[in-house]
Each structure stands twice: as C-alpha cells, then as structure tokens.
C-alpha cells in the first residue's frame, strides 16, 4: 500500500479530539470489563478469601497461594492438560481438518456435481449450534448403550463391544476434542475457504503449465498463500480454546478423576466447590499471564505480517 498517509505533524494535533472521540467508547468498555476485574483478581490472589467469607473479606497471605500452586501435583497435570491436550492437540486437529475441509469445499468436483452451495450452507450448521446444545447432542451420540456412534461401529463390525467414549481414559480426550472440533471447525474452514478463493487462478494455472503436480501445487502455491490465514487462525483458536470453560465442564466436568481437568475448570472448582476464592484467583492470574504472554507473540506476528500499516 502506498505511503501517502494523511497525517502530517499538523494533522495529528488537529485531529486529536476526533481520535479521542472515536476511541473512548471502545476503551470505556474494555477498561471496565477487562482491566478492573484483572486487578481485582490480582489482589484477591494474595489473600485467603473464602467463598463463604466474601462478606468478611480475606487476610493477606502473600504469595502462599502461588507457592502452593507451583508445588501442587494436581496443578502440573492441569497445566499439561490445558497446554497439551486442549490447546496443542485441539488446535492442531482443528487447523489440519479445517484446511482439508476448505480444500475439499473449494474443489471443482463439488461444482460439477452441484454440491457447492449445499455443502457451504451445511458447513455452517455446527457453528450455528450453541455449545450447550452441541454437548447435549454429542453426549448422547457417544453414549455406549444408546448412542448412534457405537451402534454404527458395532454395525460395521469395527468394534465388538461398545466404547464408553467419555469415561475410558484412552478415549475421553479424543472424544472431548471431537466435540470441540465439531463445534468450532466451520469458522476455521470458512476462513481458509475465503482465503483460497482470493488465490488468483492464474497462479495455479501457471504452476500447472510448469508441470507442477497436485501435491506440488499444494505445497508451493496454495499453502504459502494460506500461510497468514493459518497462522492467525492458529493463534486465535489458541485463545478461544485455552480459555474455554463450557466444553470441558459440561462434557466431563474435568473427570474421570481429574483426568480432563483444565485451568478454566480448576478456577471454577477451587472457587465454587472448594470455596477458595484466593487460590482460585491465583490460578486465574497464572492463566491470564500465560495468555497475555502468548498474546504478545501474536501481536508481534500480526504487527509484522498483517497490520504493517497500523502498527
């Protein structure tokens, strides 16, 4: 883009009231909504505030909550579950499948068999389904006795005994990730599909004339074109998944045992079941810190790649 930027030194001064006017509404919301509660959490995390003592307040106990957290065996697993299963595996599956789905939906074959419009419309169905509804449905589909998935697997002769997807240690994470992926895949696939459509067809044609096979075209033309979209979606999916409470809580409540407990559910369990608001806030502060650190990487990336003009 050209560098014929409007502002000159004079322009900046002259437009200050305008800038303030345009930004103040957004900031009013953001400060009240994000900054104030974060400071509140920070303060509470240094106290032993209990749920039943909200009225009386807590005592200052310094960094005791953080010490307990760092040394807790349970918390190490919570971190592992959140970072590895929920975020790394969950996001990777979503990106790979989203990419595959976008390529499939962009294929000329669908055009030819008149499947293009219908497939794009149906792609939106999972996205339009609220998480609570998605979980209700999937819990039934995955049910060992009554669920259609087990009936299908047994009918096809793939398994002999029904699989208890949400209770066997070997299956519970894959099942959870399936549910989350199902619900969130459309947004990812749609974004990639949109990016694919902006790929100039001459590029592909040129590659084809040069003798590039299908994989080579994918590797050297399509993927490089999609790279910014892939990176942005990876980063954003990470925020959305890492922070999400609803999926894990309503599907397994962190069980069996604490096998699928993640940071968001830990915050809830500690605050509202064990009644330890102070400790829970400390978990929340760690959670926010991790994400803000991650967010910095994300900002660096979009500052360099996406929004060069803005930053």
């Amino acid at each position: 883009m050209s560098s014929t930027a409007i502002p000159t030194a004079r322009g900046i001064r002259g437009e200050r009231p305008f800038i303030v006017f345009m930004l103040v509404p957004a900031f009013f919301f953001l400060i009240m909504f994000y900054v104030y509660p974060t400071l509140f959490n920070l303060e509470v995390s240094f106290t032993d505030l209990s749920l039943f003592g909200l009225r009386q307040g807590g005592e200052w106990i310094g960094i005791a909550n953080y010490v307990e957290l760092v040394t807790s065996k349970d918390f190490h697993r919570v971190i592992f579950n959140t970072v590895f299963w929920l975020t790394v595996v969950g996001v990777a599956v979503r990106i790979v499948l989203g990419l595959g789905l976008a390529l499939l939906l962009d294929s000329k074959v669908l055009d030819k068999y008149r499947l293009k419009t219908i497939s794009r419309v149906l792609l939106l169905v999972p996205w339009a389904t609220p998480p609570i509804v998605a979980i209700v449905s999937w819990r039934w589909l995955l049910n060992p006795q009554l669920g259609d998935i087990n009936k299908l697997l047994i009918g096809l002769g793939i398994v002999e005994q029904p699989i208890a997807f949400l209770s066997e240690a070997a299956w519970v994470w894959p099942a959870l990730i399936t549910i989350i992926t199902w619900n969130t895949l459309p947004l990812v696939a749609l974004t990639f599909l949109a990016a694919l459509q902006s790929l100039p067809s001459e590029l592909l044609e040129a590659a084809e004339i040069d003798g590039a096979g299908r994989w080579q075209r994918l590797r050297y033309v399509i993927l490089p074109h999609l790279k910014p979209a892939i990176i942005v979606m990876t980063l954003m999916s990470t925020f959305w998944t890492f922070n999400n409470f609803v999926y894990v809580w309503l599907t397994t409540a962190g069980g069996p045992g604490l096998y699928t407990n993640v940071m968001a559910t830990e915050v809830y369990i500690k605050a509202f079941i064990d009644g330890r608001m102070g400790y829970s806030s400390a978990v929340g502060v760690v959670m926010a810190t991790l994400m803000v650190a991650f967010g910095m990487i994300y900002l660096r990336f979009i500052a360099q790649r996406e929004f060069k003009e803005v930053f």
Binding site: P144, Q145, L146, I163, A164, F165, S167
Partner: peptide, 19 residues
C-alpha cells in the same frame, strides 16, 4: 455395570433409567 458408568454422574441419568 453399564458401560460408560464412568461418564455419568447421576444415578438418574437417562442411560440408567432407559436401561
């Protein structure tokens, strides 16, 4: 006991009542 017992938390779960 029913398969999937570990995946349900209430003894009035439809899976049990239905069975």
């Amino acid at each position: 006991t029913i398969a999937g017992s570990l995946g349900i938390s209430t003894d009035n779960d439809p899976a049990l009542i239905e069975a």
